[in-house]
């Protein structure tokens, strides 16, 4: 997917973050020097996110979505390609500039309990990013911590400031995680499976909260999930990932209602909405399992499992991005 050729109608400004030809491979070595191969976690991804946009990256475990998140966060160095944030390449950022970038990007993790240091209370753990970024004034820190807690609707803030993570419920923990991600006033928030470890009744709350804050603050939100059913109301665009690549991307409704790529179709068919009738019918599931990222299949990564496999095409040539519908891209030879 070359840089988004589909600007949003109301969005003429420069993109906030863009990835081009992004590869993040992890080399496997033995004894420090023998190269055994590379795990191709992110293997050629292009996209552009505009200011204030909420997008979702969807895929199964091992599709590289979390590695993509970490690459965007600057926690992994891309093997090839680059990430540009507000016009500057991430690879060029060093020292102070890199640190400044870290304040621009908030990170919400999957496991809220694990994401909070268990030995710090809420006040201290929220103060940490501020201290790291040189907010020396105690009163100023306190003010921002309280504001952040209020923003994630943990109010009154006093009630939570002195608590340790284990004293909070899962939903409250995740709110604290979100507060920490927001406390440096980032322009981009990356949420990696923010609700998958929470109970059904809490999930919606957290998703609503994220969406609300994103709209209020005009943030760009990249939301990473394995669960397509949680996406509809909380993102504007979806990127479907499979084996390190984006196979399909489109505005949410278009993608959910008219999936183009066979993998997306399979994914949608596998997900049930609660309905008693589900118990009586078998679901169509593509055979096999997601490929190993160490030795991914040649050309189209999905071809060994694809019901529409075309010998000599799908296993020979990498499918380019086609645009079978308006603003709807799909990397599949079926659209040729």
């Amino acid at each position: 997917m070359s840089p988004s050729a589909v600007p949003r109608p109301d969005d003429a400004q420069a993109p906030l973050i863009a990835a081009s030809d992004l590869h993040t491979w992890f080399e496997l070595r033995q004894w420090g020097f023998l190269r055994l191969g590379a795990v191709r976690a992110v293997d050629g991804v292009d996209f552009t996110l505009a200011h204030g946009e909420a997008v979702a990256f969807v895929g199964e475990s091992g599709c590289g979505k979390s590695s993509l998140a970490r690459t965007l966060l600057g926690l992994h160095r891309p093997t090839r390609g680059e990430v540009r944030f507000a016009g500057r390449s991430l690879g060029e950022l060093k020292g102070r500039a890199l640190k400044a970038y870290r304040a621009e990007v908030g990170y919400v993790q999957q496991d809220p309990y694990g994401a909070l240091p268990p030995f710090l209370d809420v006040r201290r753990l929220l103060a940490e990013p501020l201290i790291v970024h040189g907010v020396r004034d105690r009163a100023e820190r306190e003010r921002r911590i309280r504001a952040a807690l209020e923003e994630v609707r943990l109010s009154p803030a006093e009630e939570y400031l002195g608590k340790f993570p284990h004293m909070l419920s899962g939903g409250q923990q995740q709110r604290v995680v979100i507060a920490r991600a927001l406390i440096l006033a980032p322009r981009l928030v990356i949420a990696d499976e923010p609700v998958s470890m929470l109970d059904a009744s809490v999930r919606v709350e957290i998703l609503e909260l994220l969406r609300h804050i994103q709209c209020e603050r005009g943030l760009t939100l990249a939301f990473i999930t394995h669960d397509l059913s949680t996406v509809r109301h909380y993102a504007e665009r979806i990127f479907v990932m499979y084996a390190g690549r984006v196979v399909e991307s489109a505005p949410v409704d278009d993608l959910l209602d008219h999936p183009q790529h066979p993998y997306t179709q399979a994914l949608l068919a596998a997900i049930a909405d609660p309905d008693a009738a589900n118990a009586t019918r078998l679901r169509e599931v593509p055979a096999g399992e997601p490929p190993s990222l160490l030795h991914p299949p040649a050309a189209c990564r999905f071809h060994p499992r694809c019901p529409h496999f075309m010998a000599g095409v799908c296993d020979r040539h990498d499918p380019p991005d086609f645009e079978p519908r308006r603003r709807h891209r799909s990397a599949c030879w079926l659209h040729r």
């Binding site: 059904a200 009744s201 809490v202 999930r203 919606v204 709350e205 998703l207 609503e208 669960d227 397509l228 059913s229 949680t230 509809r232 109301h233 959910l256 949608l268 997900i271 909405d273 609660p274 309905d275 008693a276």
Partner: peptide
């Protein structure tokens, strides 16, 4: 799944995000 009786059942069903329906889930 169609008509739960207990308020908790009803609210739980309403909180489930659904893939193929446009109704917004409620926490």
């Amino acid at each position: 799944f169609a008509a739960p009786a207990h308020p908790y059942s009803q609210m739980l069903m309403a909180s489930v995000p659904r893939l193929h329906q446009r109704a917004r889930p409620e926490a």
